[in-house]
Design a binder for these strands. Structure first.
Lengths: 259, 259
DNA sequence: ATTACACCTTTACGCTGCGTCAAGGTCAAG
DNA sequence: CTTGACCTTGACGCAGCGTAAAGGTGTAAT
């Protein structure tokens, strides 16, 4: 299948100017030009454009995209899987922002109050995430974890000790969960203690706590593979167990946990 | 509480240049300037900045943001609720993109194939959504629904008849759901027929069908208030009923379903 | 055969939302 | 009174295109 600029543009939902620009900077060159100089694109270019748009969607600049896909060791399927991971991460970031908006709403309605620094937590968490995603791996390798952690703590306006505390608590939640999970009973004392620790841990980053949000997050842990994998590490079915424990903890009716 | 540029910048996670720029274009002016010309911001400005960042996060340009928040009839809480809706919409858009990536992965693995126009569906759906969000209300009022629907069909590369078919099917799903819902039995023949229609409807916009994705979407209908409200219109608890019917339809083990 | 019209080309300037110097004033601490 | 971390107002630069301007091309209908 061959496409002229406009046909490909329509297909992909971009402007012809964009295609010409991509040609100009060498990001996406047409398969050939016909006798009158018309740009002709083939199916290889269609696939490449799709990839470019995937990465553009992630917020990468065209220069980075070029480097990524022109890399000789570029592994298509692996890149796609990474891409998927990042999209999932972005969804989690969105959930954070939504929580932030909801807190703001409830604050506006007088149901609670927000300190000034709480008002920006969602945005800053995003900065951290973007940083981590783009440079985390390289920099962690080069300068070690301490540098990164310090920067993260700074961005969250936490003191370093607070951040340490935060990370310690996180580990505690994980180990308690592993322990509790083996009993198999989400309403056991140990499991409830785990849920309580989890709430405490949450309070570090969430502006305001609500049972509903807590339960909702727990459900997300099960639905989102990355979270699930994280909590399943210590113990088989850990994410589900944690969710059930939190459901008991927050007092959700077991019959219809969601509404 | 009073802030200088840098203090506010740190608080909000933006640069001082950004704050000066916002002052320059009149988007966010300091509460006052001290005797040496230093910008001093108060708590009113903190709140305003938070709102600005909310809208910026949505991808609005600063000019639009200014118009929105300087509107004398600007209703803070209502805007926040709308904002929340839009974030939820974006999350749904993200889910679409994720589905698209997953299809691409499975296509790359040879498990299925994708037509050229399928490769861009996620991106274009986004264009439609953005259009709808930004101009939908105004334009629908001015030019009527037909104009919009036509444009949507075009963008999705559907023929107009196909799009009509799509919309008819959508209505059919809703009415069948209302009928089936009253029987109260998600495994009833009528309910299963509804699930089947729903699958058919999905196939219009989803590149590839999988039981897991179908079941996942059904759960999302329950979790996301906007979807829930949509499916609850015809019948009380419609979203949940549809989810349960789809779970039966896709043969998901009832144990791993949510409740 | 020409006219119409939708396509295509290159060249080039304009825009947003800042980043990034540059050149200089201010303020608190030592 | 010096140091250093603040602040100020310019002014230029940049990506990623949008948007004309001026002109060549393909083809269907007259």
């Amino acid at each position: 299948m061959e496409y002229t600029v406009q046909k490909l543009a329509k297909l992909a939902g971009v402007s012809t100017r964009t295609l010409r620009y991509y040609d100009e900077i060498g990001l996406l060159e047409p398969a050939r030009k016909n006798s009158s100089g018309y740009r002709i694109y083939g199916s290889k270019e269609v696939d490449k454009l799709q990839q470019i748009l995937f990465y553009r969607e992630l917020g990468l600049d065209l220069d980075s995209i070029q480097k990524i896909i022109s890399n000789p060791s570029f592994d298509g399927p692996a890149a796609l899987r990474m891409h998927r991971e990042k999209l999932l991460a972005r969804r989690r970031q969105l959930d954070l922002l939504i929580t932030n908006v909801e807190s703001t709403i409830s604050a506006a309605e007088g149901k609670s109050t927000m300190a000034d620094n709480e008002k920006f937590k969602g945005f800053k968490q995003k900065l951290i995430d973007e940083n981590e995603q783009q440079y985390g791996e390289e920099v962690r390798g080069k300068y070690g974890d301490a540098t990164i952690d310090k920067s993260n703590a700074k961005m969250l306006n936490m003191s370093e000790e607070k951040y340490e505390e935060f990370k310690t608590l996180e580990k505690e939640v994980l180990s308690k969960l592993a322990e509790a999970c083996e009993t198999g009973d989400p309403s056991s004392e140990l499991a409830q203690k785990t849920a309580d620790l989890h709430k405490e841990w949450l309070s570090f980053t969430w502006p305001t706590y609500s049972k509903e949000a807590h339960a909702g997050l727990a459900q997300m842990y099960v639905d989102d593979e990355r979270f699930a994998a994280y909590y399943d590490k210590g113990c088989e079915g850990g994410a589900k167990f944690l969710r059930d424990a939190i459901l008991v903890y927050t007092g959700a009716e077991p019959e219809s946990s969601i509404d």
